[in-house]
């Protein structure tokens, strides 16, 4: 278990956008045998949520937000690398997930956190990145025989791409092959139901839980 002091310091350093310090703490925790997932869940996710909240309130501004996102990316990469090589990887993969931020949308901090948690929970994750068109998503899901397709949209103007995906899957006669999950700031459970998605994820942990439920019911 990582000490509360280290957790608090890691969280604060992320909020303060201190790249060097976050990198140092993360590497040290991993080197000392600490659980990188605990660091992510207890320090960095609450930290980036705090940054998002301060930004949403107009108390922290875009330059600081971008710097915090940059620091979070470094933390996420370090944690993901550790998870990929550590004992956290389940011997048998829990399922295959293709995940992307939809076409026209370049926001992917939240999606990257979802990827981290899914990897940590033993899923085989294919992260296509951001601004990804529907055809590419379907092609990859078909290629890897995915269980779940997860899409993220941060804008009301781009969330319609999630509906386009549902329709494209139906048109291609592939809707029954994949389970679909949607998420992102403007996305709601009602939107998921309206477009015919199989699940809505409120946040990263909810996304992991929903994917587990979906695959269990498959």
């Amino acid at each position: 278990m990582i000490s509360p002091e280290i957790i608090e310091e890691a969280k604060q350093m992320l909020v303060d956008q201190n790249k060097a310090k976050v990198e140092e703490i993360t590497k040290k925790v991993i080197a000392d045998g600490g659980d990188p997932l605990e660091l992510m869940n207890q320090a960095y996710i609450p930290g980036i949520n705090k940054v998002g909240d301060l930004f949403g309130r107009g108390e922290l501004f875009l330059p600081e937000l971008m710097q915090a996102a940059d620091v979070m990316k470094i933390a996420t990469d370090l944690v993901n690398d550790a998870l990929a090589t550590g004992s956290n990887v389940a011997a048998k993969k829990a399922g295959r997930v293709v995940i992307a931020t939809v076409k026209g949308d370049v926001h992917d901090i939240g999606k990257c956190i979802v990827v981290s948690l899914m990897k940590a929970n033993g899923f085989e994750v294919y992260d296509l990145g951001r601004d990804i068109d529907v055809d590419t998503i379907i092609q990859k899901a078909d290629e890897v025989n995915a269980d779940v397709i997860g899409t993220s949209a941060l804008l009301t103007t781009t969330m319609k791409e999630q509906k386009v995906l549902e329709e494209a899957l139906k048109s291609a006669g592939m809707r029954d092959r994949f389970l679909t999950m949607v998420g992102g700031a403007p996305v709601t459970p009602r939107w998921a139901a309206r477009i015919g998605a199989d699940a809505y994820a409120e946040d990263a942990q909810d996304g992991v839980n929903k994917v587990k439920e979906l695959i269990a019911q498959k």
Partner: peptide, 8 residues
């Protein structure tokens, strides 16, 4: 509702 700090 509030002024977004693109510059800050």
């Amino acid at each position: 509702e509030f002024i977004l700090g693109m510059h800050g």
